[in-house]
């Protein structure tokens, strides 16, 4: 009786607290994120040119157009290519770096700062750096590669190699980002867990599988989900490095959205594409949450 009452009062206290804790962030999200998203949904059923303040109702026209738009489907394929190429390799590399950086070695803070350098530089400057380095005729990197006997490639100017080059730059740019998150996760794993495993006679590899990975589950889940969402929305590096070219070989979905919305000023169609993209990303995220057994907190 008494215990039950105490429990309800704790529950009520938590409910009240949750309300106040969530109020600021949820009101800001509602106003500046969800309202525009809802607006976009409404607009995706309209003809909306940025040149015109009025929007004529268009029914499903934008969505019907999308189904038959070959270039949109090309963008979908290119986006999947980018994701498949950049996410797995990127996460494995950043986990390796994080494990390495977690070792108590001298000079580690300098190393970490170096690994983080690409993360803190802006895409505008990164594109300038890489298009200089990768220029097939006068670029320093291609010059050295050629001198070392590698076959010449046109990199960003080649329909075959532009996407691998964009993926490589994306990995280079983001590896430090994921490393920092994973490192924070690694550091909150209790040392006693490792000691217990050591006493049980577990080797380094075994400790990694049976202690590190399970303890890192929530962090890894976060890194995987965020990476997938971000790579489905990849825009900046494509915009500054290749403008989706050559021949649309690096044109991703968000670049295509940008092309329609900002270059052709057809925001109605851009909104429809954005909504389709959203549904796809949403489903993939739900699947990932299932796979990682998100709701089970140990």
């Amino acid at each position: 009786m008494n215990i039950a009452r105490k429990r309800t009062s704790v529950m009520n206290r938590q409910k009240r607290a949750a309300f106040w804790f969530l109020l600021p962030s949820m009101s800001i999200l509602a106003l500046f994120v969800f309202w525009p998203i809802a607006d976009l949904f409404w607009l995706s059923f309209h003809r909306w040119s940025l040149l015109d303040a009025n929007h004529a109702y268009a029914g499903l026209a934008n969505y019907v157009k999308l189904v038959h738009d070959e270039r949109f489907w090309n963008a979908v394929v290119r986006t999947v290519y980018f994701t498949a190429g950049s996410v797995p390799v990127g996460i494995v590399l950043s986990l390796a770096l994080a494990l390495l950086a977690n070792e108590p070695l001298k000079g580690m803070s300098a190393f970490k700062a170096i690994y983080f350098l690409p993360v803190i530089s802006s895409f505008a400057i990164i594109s300038i750096i890489w298009s200089f380095l990768l220029d097939p005729d006068i670029g320093l990197l291609s010059y050295w590669l050629k001198a070392a006997g590698f076959p010449a490639s046109a990199w960003l100017r080649s329909t075959t190699w532009a996407m691998p080059a964009v993926i490589a730059v994306a990995i280079w740019k983001n590896v430090g980002f994921n490393m920092v998150i994973l490192l924070a996760g690694l550091q909150s794993i209790s040392a006693s867990l490792y000691e217990a495993a050591k006493i049980d006679g577990a080797g380094a590899l075994q400790r990694f599988w049976s202690v590190t990975l399970p303890a890192l589950r929530q962090t890894l889940l976060f890194v995987v989900i965020i990476s997938v969402i971000a790579s489905f929305q990849v825009f900046d590096q494509v915009y500054v490095m290749t403008r989706g070219g050559p021949l649309n070989s690096t044109e991703t979905v968000v670049y295509y959205i940008y092309h329609h919305g900002f270059e052709l000023l057809d925001m109605g169609y851009a909104s429809a594409i954005a909504w389709v993209l959203f549904v796809v990303v949403f489903l993939i995220t739900l699947l990932q949450l299932r796979l990682f057994r998100f709701n089970e907190t140990d």
Binding site: L29, V33, L40, F235, I257, G261, S271, A274, F282
Partner: peptide, 10 residues
């Protein structure tokens, strides 16, 4: 969901 709509459109 707030993460899933590209900022370019909002």
């Amino acid at each position: 969901i707030a993460l899933m709509i590209p900022v370019q459109v909002t």
